[in-house]
Design a binder for these strands. Structure first.
Lengths: 165, 165
DNA sequence: CTTGGAATGTCAACAAGGCTGTCCTAAAGT
DNA sequence: ACTTTAGGACAGCCTTGTTGACATTCCAAG
């Protein structure tokens, strides 16, 4: 990827190609979130709740600080979401055993049910897209996404991948 | 998940693979919007203004209705954004010549300057990602994104692509 | 042991930007 | 003439981001 000195390999990097990539990313992200959004709209929840539930399911026992680093929001934003999830009995916050300042977060059975419902919808779309595009395209898709992340984001993403191999 | 009878080709469709794709999409989109967001934060504008400016630049003379279909927001949401852009002299709304009910939207020089600033930042990141991933990966990336869009979104996206070939 | 600072998390108040709903004008279409 | 369409204005709501002040807990230096 470094020494594409002359010409052929750079032909696809025209401004127009890049702009189409940008727009594709915009439209695709809309599709990507459309199904969960539809489900969430029928409840009193939004996308933020989805993200919280997703990552708590992914890393049970995680702390508030850890979660807000992953989500890239402030404590207060996350707190509001978390509070409603706890009040509604979807998430349980246990006082940390080692450090009592920490709260370890877990999904209740009810929370896990919502997570499944949301991620089933999202996975179905992802699966359809993957299947339509084929394995080779998927590999390329993943490669470009990785390259598009910031260093920090990429590290968080890698950590999650390795967490459940 | 239905007919993974024998086939090698479907091995990449495990739930774990799909989940990683979902998370990659989440983190990558954050990176994707990070640079423009940083620039916009220094002004009184947000992501909504960026989107409006982007698509007005892309399709000069577009109408309000057309724009809100592309952006997928309501008239009122768009109108608020548009009003501030017009007041600040970034966008010009000319009464339609054929149909005088319509307003044709154009960027002023000032608006075009902002658009360039924002899209330069975003294109730079896109270019870096494309370059790092290579042409084949980029082709796959585009294929999967297309497959991830809703039918409507895909049609809008195609129309934009063909609009400036 | 005490005390001061750092870390963890909560609460209050505010802004951006979505949404709905209603009402209005002007222009087109029938 | 009547209806439909394009657009704008206003009011109000919700979600989700922000900053700032505060309580609790831990830990380490004196």
């Amino acid at each position: 990827m470094s020494d594409q000195t002359s010409s052929d390999a750079l032909l696809f990097l025209t401004d127009e190609q890049l702009r189409q990539g940008i727009e594709a990313m915009f439209f695709a992200y809309r599709g990507f979130t459309a199904d969960p959004d539809r489900i969430l709209a029928t409840m009193a929840y939004g996308r933020a709740h989805h993200r919280a539930v997703h990552f708590i399911n992914r890393a049970p026992g995680t702390t508030v600080t850890n979660l807000l680093v992953i989500l890239g929001v402030t404590k207060q934003s996350l707190n509001r979401v978390l509070r409603s999830l706890i009040e509604d009995g979807l998430v349980e916050a246990r006082v940390g055993s080692a450090d009592k300042r920490e709260r370890n977060l877990y999904l209740t059975e009810k929370g896990a049910a919502l997570e499944r419902k949301l991620s089933d919808a999202q996975r179905n779309r992802m699966r359809a897209a993957y299947r339509a595009a084929g394995p080779q395209a998927v590999a390329g898709f993943r490669t470009v996404l990785e390259a598009m992340m910031d260093g920090d984001l990429r590290r968080r993403h890698q950590a999650l991948k390795e967490g459940s191999p």
